[in-house]
Design a protein around this nucleic acid. Structure first.
Lengths: 225, 225, 225, 225
DNA sequence: CATGAATGAGCCTTCATTCAT
DNA sequence: AATGAATGAAGGCTCATTCAT
């Protein structure tokens, strides 16, 4: 799984590692990786049930029994993909955590939101198939999103305690809102430029809601608060 | 389908209607309704592929051939459920539209957001099975959500043009954000009271984002900037 | 299983029951019986592994899915056949038990042996397929034979205690000897007449061993004892 | 095959031979022997069909292709084991034959029976796996037993002609009886001491049947008739 | 001599669907 | 209106066996 990991994702860091280990991979390991990739592609586009093992092996240029040389059964391959996605998401978010001890100026929070959002979209765009499977299609998706939300909630909570964010809405809920927005944006298959625009818009919305730039919107901290 | 519709929903009003029409229903119509309900329950909890026709008829207290007396095939029943959900969602949103000609005071926008959110959650909570199927599980879900987002976007656009909402973010994007948030909240299986809290929180967040009530959050264009 | 029992075996008693219930059998019950018989025939001649479900259903004039309408899987059908055989064997032996209270003259023991032997062979010959499966082929065969031996041992023990049989050999061992002889004789596929001869020979051997009719064989109860 | 033979059996004598030839064995010969032994163990405990080539090679500490270096296929290995058993059984019985020309006193027949029985059990106990396969499990078992019975029948016939045994039962039948008894006893997995008791009991039974030592058993043609 | 890797062939089983009543 | 019984079609998985090194 560790090896497969390196192969499956094509992110910058992963590629570095891959380049280093590619020569060491046995033929079997490469075959396994090919099968995982083929599985991801097929599962992502057809779903678990409508994907036949024969589809996967055909895409990988193998025959059916070979599949069972590397995976106990169809479900095991699927589960492994989900696990890879899950771990990757976890790693991503924890890597994105703001250093606790460091002081943050209030106006930096926008940058943080922007950065986190940008990073997550980049990662999701990296491997569309895995994202499709792990975030939308698999039965564990709900659990994974909840886990994701929890991690975000942790970050939010810190900021709330620092007085950087509103405290009248529970961090968990704010986190869920963000996850929901992320979900929707991921689903919009767009180019790099548009995605950047999305990131900007989302950052702006998270920061100020419908409010910003519209004097007529009754602002609670304004005159009618 | 129209009859089935009346049966499928179990809200108070729906029951009233049902009671009124029950006497008019033939035995066959009632059987069909039972099958639809059983289908919804099974599909919702197991998904399309993992639901066997035998599961459905067992739940409805019938035998397999009876199923085919009322539906062309398994997929037809599923599609019908999706269609019911879709129509219902459409009806709901269009009924919730703010009269175009009417003038709206700036501070009323919060009420509108609150009302729309409240209504939609109530509807989703009404029939969990249908929601699960039509909003999350079916292949058309993406399309349905987009449709939903479009309708919301229409409302937003109007408000933007009236100068009630920020214009720097496209209405379509704002709508998607809201749909995403709705999605996440729906999935949290909670009681009535908590749901109300969610509605409040979501309204507040939509209106002001992370910002409100936190003087330190650098608000680029608000009064405290 | 009870119904199937009546069908599968064609012994005199079974036939009586069958005749009585045949008219009451539903089509499904008859199909099941046909499948059991076909299974018995195929399993007996090919063994469990070399018998394909397709062989069985072909012999029964059905298609594969029908098989699974009546049996959970191939093994279940096999196990049922074994169970039928086992029960039948049990019933047979217990029906053959000599009344405990009744007094028996020493010279009657030959008749008893003859009778028991005759009866068992008749039963085995009745359903060759079941016998093949339950007595020779199935993994439980050893257990079944042991059970059979135990029942015989019970009968022998009584006779030993009455002083009708030698006591220097444990009843269990004598019973095993008999079972072994029975086994061998069953396997000789012969006609009725020859079978009778076998019964006579076996009776004589059990009673007297190599000894009888040969003055030169050192008889322990004779002069050199 | 001849070499394998020496290796396969683990009796004291066999070991002596093995030690003598071990040095002469090439590595391949030793590997082949290991595979045969592993095959015997696996086949004996699981049967032919339930034994996978992968089981065998695993037990032998090899990989699958190695198996095919020494045997044409799975069946070939099995057949070879059966052949080894068969030859061994043949050798044993013929070695046990009483010299035709020699005269035998009537009271010596008990000793002969005892000796033959003792020898055969010892041999069977020697290699349980081979016995399981060749005598019980393989399709040829029936034929092998018949062959065995024939050889015994030959011995019996001689004794009958010498007037040492009863002539009213065909030698073939008597031989079958003995084989049946042997079968059953073999299957009782016991220690050396008990086995001796079995030999004694069987000898006694073969000689005198149920009769001996029980004055009340009506012996039709013996001295106490 | 031995193995990592791959495959051909085939069987069991499932399930949506239909037929006849 | 409903059902007992049956089937067509297809997919997952296993296993003996081989290829290339």
């Amino acid at each position: 799984m560790t090896e497969a990991d390196k192969i499956e994702i094509h992110g910058p860091h992963a590629n570095c590692n891959a380049r280093a280990t590619l020569t060491k991979q046995s033929k079997g390991e490469r075959t396994r990786a090919r099968l995982l990739e083929a599985s991801a592609a097929e599962f992502a586009s057809r779903g678990f049930h409508d994907t036949k093992v024969s589809d996967i092996v055909a895409r990988a240029g193998l025959t059916q029994p070979s599949f069972y040389l590397y995976f106990a059964n169809k479900e095991a391959a699927y589960d492994e993909l989900v696990a890879i996605f899950r771990r990757r998401l976890r790693d991503l978010v924890s890597a994105n955590r703001f250093p606790e001890d460091q002081d943050m100026r209030p106006d930096q929070i926008r940058l943080r939101i922007h950065h986190a959002t940008h990073t997550i979209f980049e990662a999701f765009d990296q491997d569309r198939n895995l994202t499709e499977i792990g975030f939308f299609q698999c039965p564990l998706a709900e659990e994974i999103k909840t886990e994701y939300a929890c991690m975000i909630a942790g970050n939010i909570l810190e900021d709330q305690q620092r007085g950087l964010l509103r405290r009248d809405i529970p961090a968990e809920l704010l986190a869920q809102f963000i996850v929901g927005m992320v979900e929707r944006i991921i689903r919009m298959k767009v180019g790099k430029k548009e995605r950047e625009a999305h990131v900007d818009a989302m950052t702006a919305f998270i920061a100020d809601g419908f409010h910003a730039g519209c004097e007529r919107l009754a602002c609670p901290s304004g005159p009618d608060a």
